[in-house]
């Protein structure tokens, strides 16, 4: 299993666009936004926080959404289309291991990305590290797993790699929107924010654990539920060829 993860990790590193988007992009975006003076001045409209402080959780959403809803479904659907999964099923190792390896590679890439984001935020812009580290780690992992489960569901149902890419993009856009990536969440109407709170990958729980309090167990529960439900359906309906 370690060897599969290791191989998949090497393959990930050989795709420059994947590495840039999944690992480097959030930190780059933070640097660009942080370069604008107005966005690093405390804003009385927003509890005297700076925009960049409040935007950190949305940057984490970027990483999670890209890995779970772009990289995962397209890679898996391509592996199926090219017969990589079928070839696995002629060996003593079940092809499901390859999917698990994909998710593990995503977790590693996601951790790298978020650590980089924290370092840049802390060193360059004096942004606090998450105040509730345990809550943040739990939310991050649940957020990742829930989006991965949805990504695998897309891969399971899409007839081919192109369709998987298309469908995943729609979900990706929605998640990014509700995660406050396109428009900061304080500009979104309340009812949209409320929806976003419960949607994977749990932007509100990320925000809570970053800015002070523990994440709301209900939010985490919803993420866990989505993971189990989407994961089960994906596993039941997955086609290996």
């Amino acid at each position: 299993m370690l060897k599969i993860v290791n191989t998949e990790w090497k393959l990930f590193l050989r795709e420059p666009s994947m590495v840039v988007f999944a690992v480097l992009f959030p930190a780059i975006l933070l640097s660009v936004l942080g370069a604008i003076p107005a966005l690093r001045t405390p804003d009385p409209n927003f509890d005297n926080q700076r925009f960049i402080d409040a935007y950190m959780s949305s940057l984490v959403v970027v990483t999670l959404a890209f890995l779970g809803l772009n990289k995962l479904p397209t890679t898996v659907a391509t592996y199926r289309e090219k017969g990589v999964l079928r070839r696995f099923s002629t060996t003593p190792v079940h092809p499901a291991r390859l999917l698990v390896a994909q998710v593990l590679v995503n977790v590693i890439a996601g951790v790298l990305s978020v650590v980089l984001l924290m370092v840049v935020g802390r060193v360059v812009f004096d942004i606090d590290l998450p105040h509730h580290p345990l809550g943040f780690v739990v939310t991050f992992l649940l957020g990742m797993l829930s989006l991965s489960a949805i990504g695998l569901l897309v891969a399971a149902w899409a007839p081919n790699a192109r369709a998987a890419g298309g469908w995943a993009t729609v979900v990706f856009m929605l998640v990014m929107f509700f995660g406050g990536v396109y428009l900061p969440r304080f500009l979104l109407p309340d009812f949209l924010n409320t929806i976003g709170e419960y949607l994977p990958p749990g932007v509100e729980a990320l925000q809570d654990s970053w800015l002070g309090a523990a994440p709301d167990p209900v939010h985490l529960g919803v993420l866990a539920l989505v993971t189990v439900a989407a994961g089960t359906v994906a596993a039941k309906s997955f086609r290996w060829e």
């Binding site: 393959l11 090219k82 017969g83 990589v84 079928r86 070839r87 002629t90 060996t91 003593p92």
Partner: peptide, 18 residues
């Protein structure tokens, strides 16, 4: 069986960059 039978499948590729 998997340990005793090797199969070369029709139209089965590997990942591009491996």
């Amino acid at each position: 069986l998997r340990t005793r039978l090797g199969a070369q499948l029709q139209q089965s590729d590997l990942p591009d960059r491996i």
